Simulated scan of single mutants.
Amino acid sequence: MEVIGSGFLAGRFADLAGSRPGVVVAAFGVSVASGIPEADFTREATRLYELIRRCERREEKLVFFSTASAAMYAVPGEPGREDGPVFPSTAYGRHNLTLEAVLAASRVDYLALRLAHVVGPAQHARMLVPSLVRQIQSGAVRLYRGARRDLVDVDDLVDLTDRLLATGVSRTVVNVATGSAVPVERIVDHLEAELGVTADRAYVSEATSQPVSVARLRHLVPEAARIGGEDYYRDVLGKYFREYAATTAAAG
């Protein structure tokens, strides 16, 4: 496996670099969902186009990371499916859907993974858990009313990706999520208890919440059923929040 990129996901997938020959992981590009300059989208698209051409020539399999967040699944009701209609709510969601379409129109062997909110070490400060920890420690946190977040441990993402590749599934899109999104207030409650801080909460707007279907993931990789459940998000937060608390304290 060749991992292309230098950020959060690239660092975690480096553990698989010695396995899965002929697989290329595109672990680069836009990693936050808002406030993204158009130039950043253009840069990621151009790099992906070049990689698609390369993988076509060399007959390599390309792994691409898309999103299963509310940026993609933004219509309340039945769970969002990979083969169902989607109405992306942000430029970030529309960008990812466009790149999925480019892959589908190409001849490359690809696996596009729509990711829920992945949590792990050394994340961008604007991603969910680092951002919430920083805000809580400052004494004030801003939330979207009605927001829910489906958290996935990055170590589980790496494991599930490896298992999906082992199935040989080709030219398809798979949601990687638990299927059990947690109200953001419960995430904040847990972080406040762990940090020993109670922050003022300000609600800025209503948020659309659409559950994510994990039927395809669990059909392909039955072991995926082990992630999720009532305590899973607490375990994920407990595993990583201390790093961001320490980073915030050091910066302060």
Score class of each variant (00 low, 15 high):
residue 195 L to T: 12
residue 235 D to W: 15
residue 169 V to L: 14
residue 109 D to W: 10
residue 116 A to Q: 03
residue 129 V to M: 11
residue 121 P to K: 08
residue 43 R to K: 11
residue 60 E to V: 11
residue 207 A to I: 12
residue 21 P to F: 11
residue 154 V to Q: 00
residue 170 S to E: 07
residue 170 S to W: 11
residue 4 I to D: 04
residue 82 E to R: 08
residue 130 P to G: 04
residue 232 Y to D: 01
residue 73 Y to Q: 06
residue 27 A to W: 03
residue 252 G to D: 11
residue 81 R to Q: 04
residue 19 S to P: 08
residue 35 G to T: 12
residue 45 A to M: 14
residue 25 V to S: 00
residue 165 L to V: 07
residue 100 E to Y: 07
residue 43 R to P: 03
residue 114 R to W: 07
residue 31 S to F: 08
residue 188 V to A: 06
residue 17 A to Q: 11
residue 162 D to F: 10
residue 250 A to F: 15
residue 10 A to Y: 06
residue 96 N to M: 12
residue 180 S to G: 10
residue 43 R to D: 00
residue 32 V to D: 01
residue 93 G to V: 12
residue 78 E to P: 14
residue 139 G to D: 00
residue 157 L to T: 03
residue 148 R to H: 13
residue 164 L to K: 05
residue 143 L to M: 08
residue 103 L to I: 06
residue 250 A to C: 11
residue 41 F to D: 01
residue 188 V to Y: 03
residue 201 R to L: 12
residue 8 F to M: 10
residue 117 H to A: 13
residue 179 G to L: 12
residue 153 D to V: 12
residue 199 A to T: 09
residue 241 F to M: 07
residue 176 V to T: 06
residue 55 C to I: 12
residue 51 L to G: 00
residue 74 A to F: 12
residue 10 A to H: 07
residue 156 D to W: 08
residue 220 L to G: 02
residue 228 G to H: 06
residue 208 T to G: 10
residue 1 M to V: 14
residue 214 V to I: 15
residue 46 T to K: 13
residue 55 C to E: 00
residue 55 C to K: 04
residue 184 V to L: 15
residue 120 G to L: 10
residue 30 V to Q: 02
residue 144 Y to N: 07
residue 150 D to G: 08
residue 147 A to Q: 13
residue 224 A to F: 07
residue 247 T to G: 06
residue 99 L to N: 02
residue 199 A to Y: 10
residue 125 A to H: 13
residue 221 V to P: 00
residue 95 H to K: 11
residue 195 L to I: 15
residue 243 E to T: 13
residue 91 A to R: 13
residue 58 R to F: 08
residue 30 V to C: 02
residue 236 V to F: 07
residue 249 A to P: 08
residue 127 M to N: 04
residue 132 L to D: 02
residue 183 P to K: 06
residue 165 L to K: 02
residue 10 A to K: 07
residue 127 M to A: 06
residue 10 A to N: 04
residue 75 V to Y: 01
residue 159 D to S: 14
residue 109 D to F: 09
residue 22 G to M: 10
residue 234 R to C: 06
residue 71 A to M: 11
residue 8 F to L: 13
residue 240 Y to G: 04
residue 2 E to N: 13
residue 240 Y to L: 10
residue 246 A to P: 06
residue 84 G to L: 09
residue 118 V to R: 02
residue 74 A to D: 03
residue 202 A to I: 14
residue 13 F to N: 03
residue 85 P to I: 09
residue 218 R to M: 02
residue 148 R to L: 09
residue 44 E to L: 13
residue 185 E to P: 11
residue 22 G to A: 01
residue 249 A to R: 13
residue 65 F to S: 01
residue 64 F to P: 05
residue 124 H to F: 03
residue 198 T to V: 15
residue 250 A to G: 08
